[in-house]
Design a protein around this nucleic acid. Structure first.
Lengths: 202, 202, 202, 202
DNA sequence: CATGAATGAGACTTCATTCAT
DNA sequence: CATGAATGAAGTCTCATTCAT
């Protein structure tokens, strides 16, 4: 049975993935609310009815996409972790976020999710969980000695610095949505000014 | 005629205001898209049809509310301007933003607007305009001598500092939506660490 | 009382007339259905509510306008009655009908009324009555001796000739709606061919 | 694939036809504007929403019905073409037009379309095109020798005669809407008087 | 007499979801 | 497993009509 069902499971996962990729494109283009199941079905090149074999309803897709976005954000933040080129990493992330087309990560969706968190406890809980994981990982890195690729901060500094950096990163993301053509040099200078002290031990 | 029409004008303005207040409540509760005209009409205690006497369509209400939100945000940022207690001001703003009930300013709507800006040029334009005004005002304050209630920064520092501080303020707002019960002491420490150098001349 | 009420009656009639003139303009511009009471009120420079003091409802206005159109049509046909210049008269009428702006007579409304006659017995009855009057008048003229300004037809010819001419006149009116820029010379030749024998005794 | 899609196409066409037939009944009964999508849906025994799978909006249905009416009218006029029994043909057409129930051709709709042509360029264009085709066909017949089933008119006569006959035919149609119980004998005599000379060469 | 704010019914349209095929 | 036709609820908006002022 396991031999028989394994491919079936794989196929089901592939279908789910196909749907989620299509949904992501639609959500980025139109927003969670304005994208229709018909849009998604067309983008996924399947019938609308079939989607309901893999997701209970549209809301389930929305939640799944939100989860994906959270994973993407964590991955994106994890990539930042290279103390020497932190600002460079932020700038590259800013660039990516400014152009919707680049990848599966969409600031617009992140913002809509954050807004939705003030209304839906379920969404708030998911965000909280993801943020907690991100922070834990990030603080590990802040704490890790420089010779092990970390930032080498003292234990007492880690908590407040991670929060401070989160403010900066989030603010940068929000700005990517509102002023995507912000001058990159200005951004770099501002970020360097902000991070100069934050990432240097005491 | 002016005596006759004045009350009529007042009444019309009162109705517009009534509708906008109702709309604000609905938008905060459901979001711009999910709130229906029926919702708004009920909240404003009037028939849905009547709303169209005062606003051309739902979008006009959305834009009016967005403009209000932008004005609120500018007012909120303007209130921050007291160099010595800048962090205190931010903390208080954070507090206000965390509790939806407090006032007409809603982080959730700000986030949705920012997301919408990536799709609607009209919204993007409104945000851009408001952001420009805010920045100009804020940079005036950064530049003004301390003895005149300003921050007393050198001209060369103003541009990058205002951008840096905007990152921090925006990040703080985003955090208010996602983690409204963040420990206030941690927030204070993080903000102090960020702003310590930013608001001190060179 | 008659001295007191006479001006009141006159005023009421003036108001009714004001409304009907406004309604006519609106109906010609938008059609019976698409013209709104608000349109009419604005065109009549009075409030929408006031109209209901003079007409029970929109339908009453429609019927009154229809009656007016019938009167106009009868007047228009009566003007034709000059045997020698019958074709000239038709051509001028055609010209007038082709340009909406010229007067209160509108082919479009006539056509809509005729269509409505197939649905509403009330409208059908009004049309029938008007058509009967028109025909009676027209046949009187056909019968009247030429020296008295008539067409001088024999009694036995009058009935069928009046019907035949009615076909031609109606057909001309319909064409005015569908091909307002029809070449006038072609129209003249066609009319002359049609009427050459119809208006000449036996 | 052609075997698989053919029935689907047939079904779609059947549905479109079902909708158009229902719409025709509603339009005849209420007129283009007064008939609602709900009316049509009920007449077609389907939900209102489903109609939008087959027609973009109500206007598309109106235009499709208009086109059908124009085709019907052309077919009806084409059937007239038998020089000897032209009057008989007209009388039969008059009979048919007088009873709405008989077929899909409705004078009322033709009149409304003609009225609408004075307001909507799109409708005017459609009518013009149809009228042009009708005229071309009709003039061909007028020109064709009698031994080939035509009317055998000289080339110079064709233009004005076709216009003259169009006046008569249109007038007859308008009369069908306004006086459906007109005495058939009177009509016949009038038509014979009109057409006696028009269809005879020179 | 006159206004125009207010209502409520109803118009068109969209869309998540279901189900026969 | 897959389709897409079908539904029904809901959304935005218009408008004839009424009524307090």
């Amino acid at each position: 049975m396991s031999e028989a069902s394994a491919p079936a499971v794989r196929r089901a996962d592939a279908q789910r993935d196909r749907i989620l990729c299509a949904a992501l494109r639609c959500f980025i283009e139109h927003g969670f609310h304005a994208a229709s199941m018909a849009n998604i079905a067309e983008a996924a090149q399947m019938s609308a009815g079939l989607i309901y074999r893999y997701f209970e309803n549209k809301n389930a897709i929305v939640l799944a996409i939100m989860q994906r976005q959270l994973d993407e954000k964590r991955a994106l933040i994890r990539q930042l972790q290279s103390a020497d080129q932190f600002v460079d990493g932020l700038l590259k992330a800013f660039d990516d976020l400014c152009s919707t087309a680049r990848g599966p990560m969409s600031v617009a969706l992140m913002l809509e999710m954050s807004a939705e968190a003030t209304r839906s406890p379920q969404v708030a809980e998911a965000l909280r969980h993801s943020d907690d994981l991100t922070r834990a990982e990030f603080e590990d890195w802040l704490r890790r000695p420089r010779e092990q690729g970390g930032a080498g901060l003292a234990a007492g500094q880690v908590r407040s610095r991670s929060l401070a950096i989160r403010f900066v990163v989030d603010g940068l993301a929000l700005r990517a949505a509102r002023e995507p053509d912000l001058d990159r040099t200005e951004v770099r200078v501002a970020l360097e000014e902000l991070l100069r002290t934050l990432l240097k031990p005491e």
